[in-house]
Every structure is written in C-alpha cells, then in structure tokens.
Lab assay of single mutants.
Amino acid sequence: MDVFMKGLSKAKEGVVAAAEKTKQGVAEAAGKTKEGVLYVGSKTKEGVVHGVATVAEKTKEQVTNVGGAVVTGVTAVAQKTVEGAGSIAAATGFVKKDQLGKNEEGAPQEGILEDMPVDPDNEAYEMPSEEGYQDYEPEA
C-alpha cells in the first residue's frame, strides 16, 4: 500500500510541476504579447503594419512553449490582441483601416495563427491545408 501511495504522490508532483510550467509559459506569452502591443503603439504610420505582424510573430513563438489545451486559448487571445492593436492603430490615425491585415508588401496577414497546427491532446499534428499553395516548377 505504501508503494501505491508513494507512486500516487510522485504522479501528483509531476502534474503540479507540469501545471506550473504551463502557467509560466502562458505568463511569458502574455508578456511578449504586451511587449508587441507597446511596440505597435510606438510606431509611426509606416511601421504600424509591420508592428502588428511582430506582435503576432512574438506571440506565436511563445505559444510553442505552452502545451496542451492552453495553446488553443493563448492563440485565440493573441489573435484578438493583434486585431485590437490594429483597431487602436486605425482609431489613433497611425494607419488607414484599409491597410490593416496586410503586410508591407500588401499581402493579407489573416491566418497567421489560424494555420498553425495545434492539437490540445498532444496526440497528432496535421499540416495546414494546401489550398493556398501553388506547385513550383523550376525553369529549365
């Protein structure tokens, strides 16, 4: 019985440690998101679009440190934060509304985080759909 109880105690310690790591990862992701939003706020009209992409990228980098179902929630929060940063930029006159959601080359930025393969159960990952990809044929 002692062996059984000791095993359960060790398992509990492992769960607590994993929860603490997840909590730490979420806190880091939130900190990076805040950094990115402050970065966007300090940019001029020309830099705002690039700044919004930076927020998304920093958040995406930190999301990889967070495991399990938390990833889905962090990704949703990050996307809403990026959308909010863009709205703030438009409201303050840093950028025109028609410039939001495009990178410096004018290509749409939507789907940055949505296409990231995420499995809350950590069982399997699927690649994003290939609808947006084109076949590449090298020139002879």
Rank of each mutant, 00 (worst) to 15 (best):
E137W: 07
Q62V: 03
V3K: 02
A27H: 08
N103F: 06
P117I: 05
G67R: 13
E126L: 05
E13A: 15
K23R: 07
E83V: 10
A85L: 14
Q109H: 10
G25W: 11
L100G: 09
T92W: 15
Y125C: 07
A19Q: 01
I112Y: 05
V63F: 10
V16F: 13
E139S: 11
G132S: 03
S87L: 15
K58M: 15
G132Y: 13
P108N: 13
A90W: 14
A89I: 12
Y133Q: 07
A124T: 03
G73H: 10
D135C: 06
V77H: 01
G73D: 02
E126T: 07
K58R: 09
G86E: 13
E13F: 13
V48Q: 00
L100R: 08
D119G: 08
K6E: 02
Q99G: 14
D121M: 08
A53I: 14
E35D: 09
G47R: 13
K45R: 13
K58H: 09
E139V: 11
K60E: 01
L100I: 07
A76Y: 09
P120A: 10
V55W: 15
E123M: 12
G132C: 12
Y133T: 07
A29L: 08
V52Q: 01
E131M: 02
S9C: 07
V66S: 01
K45D: 00
V3Q: 03
K23S: 04
T33K: 00
K23W: 15
G41W: 08
V71Q: 03
A90E: 05
P117Y: 10
T75P: 01
A91T: 05
Q79W: 06
K96S: 10
S9N: 15
A140N: 12
Y133N: 09
E83A: 09
E105T: 12
T75Y: 15
Y136R: 06
T92Y: 15
G84V: 14
K32T: 02
V66A: 07
G84N: 12
E46N: 11
K10E: 01
G51H: 10
V70N: 01
T54I: 14
E139C: 02
V52N: 01
T75V: 14
V3F: 02
M116G: 03
A17P: 00
A76H: 11
S87F: 13
T75C: 10
E61I: 05
K80R: 08
E139H: 06
V3Y: 04
F4L: 06
N103I: 04
M1D: 00
E61W: 12
V63P: 01
D115A: 13
K12E: 00
Q99M: 13
L38F: 11
M127H: 07
E126R: 10
K58V: 09
K96R: 07
E28W: 04
A17K: 12
Q62L: 07
E105N: 13
P138E: 04
G106W: 13
K96M: 14
A27T: 03
E126S: 05
T64Y: 13
V71W: 15
P108I: 05
Y125G: 08
E130I: 06
K10F: 04
G86F: 14
Y136M: 09
A56N: 02
I112V: 11
A140E: 07
E131Y: 12
G14N: 08
V49R: 10
G93E: 05
A89Q: 05
V74G: 02
E13D: 05
T81Q: 02
G93Y: 02
G84A: 15
A76D: 03
E57W: 06
G68D: 13
T54P: 01
E130H: 10
V52Y: 05
E28K: 06
I88P: 02
G106D: 04
K23N: 01
K97Y: 15
K21Q: 05
Y39C: 03
E114Q: 07
A76L: 11
E123D: 13
K80L: 13
A11G: 02
T22R: 01
P128M: 12
A56K: 09
V55I: 13
E137R: 10
V49D: 01
V77Y: 12
V37E: 00
E57T: 06
M1W: 00
E114M: 03
